[in-house]
Design a protein around this nucleic acid. Structure first.
Lengths: 244, 244
DNA sequence: CGGTCGGTTGAAGCGCATCAATCCAAGTGG
DNA sequence: CCACTTGGATTGATGCGCTTCAACCGACCG
């Protein structure tokens, strides 16, 4: 699909992705006896306003969680990969809707069962806290992204997030699959699909990446990509008059 | 200071504020034997890049946590009120700086001590998870705000957040104190201080509020304020073609 | 092979940022 | 107690980045 000489280096940072990342030890174990449920592309797993009765574990496929505000504006709050948990931190009633990005298999557990299961084992409890902390850290990165980054920086940041995520799943390397459509990327990044498109085009022109079809991206220079993501790396980060 | 007839209603929603909200049962108890440290206005409690060695409890005053990105752009990640915890979900090394918004007293605990203290008591552990979940919910609201809300909506949302926060502290009512300067509000909302100003002026023109000095705001109509915050309440929320 | 849906590209407009005065409140020193 | 100082707040004028609107492309599917 691709054939070029590219530069490549393993990452040094690790900010986790979105929703609830990797269940390392075995929070999954709580779900292992639950039946697997199937959802078709676009199907709704739970809806804004529903009672938040369950915690969900993604087995296969992928979910997006979205929120709608006045005027029908849409925001993608997060994406959930296989191994991710969904609904742990939900308010009751749910403030947010979860939909399948592709054909997806999940297991569910009632909130009570989940809570009891976690409390029975201090390791699981510790792991849960760890997970929530990683989530918070990722959410804070996202907040900075949305508050202050430019369109190109946002897209670069998302691509890096996806790349790290794949790496964590052992599918590392310069060729990444962007599993969501442009509109989902846009609503995740606080942009429009057109702006995401233009940013991707710009990155291709800059020789940072090459796209192939809608979902395949080859990263030609991870270093350039990281530099364009807008975070303070060695180089940048001048001072700024803090007030006034 | 103010003298007008205003409409007022208690809130129905409860999304919590920023950083780490209220320590209801007694996560505070872990800190009670620690010495109190004083910080002057603007002083740094911990700095981006430091080893994340401690968890902090705000006793009095207020903190802001900020992140800087390439080009010196600044984002306020959150504000911490008395009773809030800071540093629970920090990565090591710290990705973020905490500064005193006003003369502030805090207590600190090493991360190990904190972890051990929490683990010794399942109630504390439960409370910690609760806290982190509230944080996540607040962070998600913030993400939606930054991704899709207009300037006026953002300012309204912040005012409501402050108002709810004061209410929780038993200082409810239409007269609220906005403890941070316009620049901090702006960097929290992903705007500039000028835009925050103009939004406040607009809200005053609309008869939603009256300001008195830099930090005092009288909310004349909480209902209008809530309607202008952009969230889907009864009224809004048309459909929207989900793709394309 | 035509239809559909997402993606891409172009042109025009708007909301917020930027730049620049001026204002105002709080503190300071006489 | 009041001039003076200083830093944040406010208001105005201008510019830019992203959105919006619109047309077209291209892949996938029946």
């Amino acid at each position: 699909m691709f054939s070029e000489t590219i530069e490549w280096r393993t990452s040094t940072a690790d900010p986790s992705f979105v929703a609830v990342p990797t269940i390392a030890p075995r929070l999954e174990s709580l779900f292992s006896h639950q039946p697997v449920e199937q959802f078709k592309t676009g199907a709704t797993v739970f809806r804004e306003g529903d009672a938040a009765t369950h915690v969900f574990g993604v087995v296969e496929g992928m979910l997006r969680t979205i929120k709608i505000l006045a005027g029908g504006r849409r925001a993608v709050v997060g994406f959930a990969y296989p191994g991710d948990l969904l609904g742990v931190s939900l308010r009751s009633p749910n403030f947010g809707t979860a939909e399948a990005l592709s054909p997806t298999k999940i297991r569910r557990l009632s909130r009570d069962q989940f809570r009891q299961g976690v409390q029975r084992c201090s390791e699981l409890n510790l792991r849960l806290v760890q997970l929530l902390c990683e989530d918070m850290a990722a959410a804070e990165d996202r907040i900075v992204l949305l508050a202050r980054k430019t369109a190109v920086e946002r897209v670069c940041s998302l691509l890096l997030l996806i790349e790290r995520r794949l790496q964590k799943a052992g599918r590392g390397g310069p060729a990444i699959e962007v599993p969501m459509c442009r509109l989902d990327m846009a609503d995740y990044l606080g942009l429009t699909k057109e702006t995401v498109c233009r940013a991707m085009t710009r990155l291709a022109e800059l020789g940072v990446l090459v796209t192939s079809g809608r979902h395949a991206v080859l990263i030609l220079s991870r270093v350039k990509l990281a530099n364009l993501a807008g975070d303070v790396d060695g180089e940048a980060g001048f001072s700024r008059t803090p007030h006034n």
